[in-house]
Design a protein around this nucleic acid. Structure first.
Lengths: 213, 213
DNA sequence: AGTTACGGAATGAACATTCATTCATTGCGT
DNA sequence: ACGCAATGAATGAATGTTCATTCCGTAACT
């Protein structure tokens, strides 16, 4: 083999165009919905011809799955990388909230796309597997948090996650639809309210309560 | 005018077919999404011909707005009728939660349809007005609750509503997608957790805490 | 008989996908 | 070094399909 084999991040022209189309598709999907966006506008947004798009993706459905996996893996990466989920604490919760907020703020299209409902009929098994890859670590964290007395263990872990995630999504959805504007303080207050919903209040425990302002 | 003028609930054959089509459309929309459902299947579900459907609704968009208004008004009716929002209390909150739960359980299609994102581009001013008709009373209730010391007043009312509503929707969405099964106890626990998120914890107040089991 | 409601085939527009062609790059014989 | 096939990427007009909407023959009612 004459060429030095690049292991993971192949960066030839093909790969770049592949990603370029995925990014463009994400923008258009986020704006007009899945059924709502024809393929040609995606190609136009990506700056390529329609035929070219079909060179890289077998079908619209394939493209949708690619966009989903791309967004979901970026969310997972930003949420979980370098994070010790096995030792839950209030500061870990704050950290997760901050990361989630950063994702929603810096990649609003991806955040919105992932919360759309209409892709669930398109998703293939691999994409569904990616859902689990994010949910399972979070579930483990909640289980440990409940065992250590940090979190209220009266709710089953999946319920606590659904509650918390739903609240977060609800807040940002309200902002996107114009019912609300959110500054940093609002987000902190929402975070603290969510913590109240899932934390354990029965017995005192030795976790720090975060720095005083 | 020879006919006895019926004031509100006109119940001739026309009105019944009108509602029949709306109900059918709701079922199909809830299953396949707005862009995702062609008009003919709606007519088939309603047991009428396509031409008949267009006799009653000018266009698919008109039909969507009719379905939206119908569902929204039923939600509003079930949530708010005979309820004294001006005197918030823990039991009022529980009452609201129970009504919301009943709606989600008994009219899952309507609940799901109203939470879909893709109708927002279709909605006409009248439909948008209906959104307000539900949100404004809830907002007032929160304002009063904050003034009386029942609710935490650190969050702006709209934020508290978005948080609470998002959590509720998130829980039922998780159930619909199969991530979760909810029994009555789960729902009570979720309700109590939501209450913790928005209630005032600083000073004791004289509201009852509900009956002990 | 006349009027109105109904249904579903017919219509034309919009769509996802294909394909014949153009264009750029590469490899090779000289 | 140069020209010239050959390869493969890129394109957007063309294709067949699906959709929203219309229209007209038939049935029901008055």
């Amino acid at each position: 083999m004459a060429s030095p084999a690049p292991v993971t991040p192949v960066d030839n022209k093909e790969t770049r165009k592949h990603e370029q189309i995925i990014r463009a598709a994400l923008r258009v999907f986020a704006e007009h919905g899945l059924h709502g966006t024809p393929v040609p506008p995606i190609a136009a947004e990506a700056g390529v011809g329609v035929g070219t798009l079909y060179r890289y993706f077998d079908s619209k459905e394939t493209l949708i799955n690619a966009v989903f996996r791309d967004s979901k893996s970026r969310l997972k990466e930003r949420l979980l990388s370098d994070l010790d989920l096995l030792h839950p604490s209030r500061s870990l919760f704050d950290n997760l909230w901050a990361r989630l907020t950063a994702f929603a703020r810096e990649e609003p299209d991806a955040f919105h796309f992932l919360e759309m409902q209409d892709h669930h009929s398109y998703l293939d098994p691999e994409s569904r597997h990616q859902e689990q890859a994010l949910l399972i670590p979070l579930g483990m964290m909640v289980v440990i948090g409940q065992r250590t007395g940090l979190l209220n263990d009266i709710m089953k872990p999946d319920l606590a996650i659904a509650l918390f995630w739903g609240a977060f999504v609800g807040v940002f959805k309200a902002e996107r639809l114009g019912y609300l504007t959110l500054d940093d303080d609002d987000l902190k207050r929402a975070r603290d309210a969510c913590w109240l919903a899932i934390a354990n209040h029965n017995t005192p425990h030795d976790n720090n309560k975060g720095p005083q302002p």
